[in-house]
């Protein structure tokens, strides 16, 4: 079983949901990445999504755009991010690591080399924002041959046919983007999310995570009642922006603790 699948299996057995933080690797500087990953795990993260910075983050709001720009000022590359993942793995062998980013750095490296190096670095899953299922059959095949899961996005506007198509290709989990818009925007409607997750589950066998717009423990708790995982991006990145290299790790650990304890509370 893959590290992602066994993580979800253990959580399900305990009746818990996965807490998945996202941050941009190399923000505020390359040396902070691994300490931040460990701090997130200490605070209660079950899976870590490591953002690969890109010069043109079309699907991201201002918070994650700024984090990407900070990382790029340090020249952080896809290979550099893989080196961070590898270093994390020398200490932590149980927490799944998922790379999240845009297509072009992967196109540039080449699918086969990317898959091989990602596997060697202990990466478990890959989510590419601008590869919808119809454009990445070759990459999915390549990643699969190296036992790496491909995680796909689903949105409120995905038709049932598309959800089913994603269900056929997806492994690890799927990521339901609960808002129309970019990362960090707007407000989340829990009842709406519940209905959408139910619809997705009719077509998709893997766990369903929900993200975009989850910024506090109360929302995390409400969403985790209807989904298998919650993904927290902009809130984590904001803590890193404000805390910097010195205080970032302590602050993201505290945020994870806030979310974790809210999610694990029973009743209201």
């Amino acid at each position: 079983m893959s590290r992602i699948a066994s993580t979800f299996a253990q959580l399900a057995a305990a009746g818990r949901q996965a807490l998945i933080p996202f941050f941009t690797a190399g923000d505020p500087d390359p040396a902070s990445a691994v300490p931040l990953m460990h701090a997130l795990v200490r605070g209660g993260a079950d899976i870590v999504e490591l953002g690969v910075p890109f010069s043109d983050p079309m699907a991201d709001g201002p918070v994650i755009q700024r984090s990407s720009e900070r990382a790029l000022q340090h020249g952080v590359s896809l290979l550099g991010v893989l080196a961070m993942a590898r270093e994390f793995r020398t200490v932590n062998t149980h927490t799944p690591v998922v790379l999240m980013g845009y297509a072009n750095p992967i196109e540039r490296l080449g699918y086969e080399r990317f898959a091989r190096e990602a596997r060697a670095a202990g990466v478990d899953g890959v989510l590419v924002v601008d590869y919808p299922p119809e454009e990445c059959e070759d990459l999915v095949a390549c990643l699969r041959s190296h036992d790496i899961d491909t995680i796909f996005l689903l949105s409120p506007t995905s038709t049932d046919a598309r959800v089913a198509a994603v269900g056929k290709l997806a492994s690890g989990y799927v990521y339901y983007v609960s808002l129309r818009g970019v990362t960090g925007a707007g407000h989340i409607d829990t009842a709406d999310v519940a209905g959408q997750v139910q619809r997705i589950r009719q077509h998709v066998a893997v766990p369903v995570g929900v993200g975009f717009g989850i910024r506090d423990g109360a929302t995390a708790k409400a969403i985790s009642a209807v989904a298998d995982a919650i993904v927290v991006g902009s809130r984590v990145v904001l803590e890193i922006e404000e805390g910097g290299a010195a205080h970032g790790p302590a602050r993201v650990q505290a945020v994870m603790q806030e979310f974790r304890s809210a999610m694990d509370q029973t009743g209201d």
Binding site: M58, D130, P132, E134, L153, S158, R162, G181
Partner: peptide, 12 residues
Amino acid sequence: GGTFVAETLIAA
């Protein structure tokens, strides 16, 4: 060419 966009834009 193609359609390299996030899922949120596909329906549009």
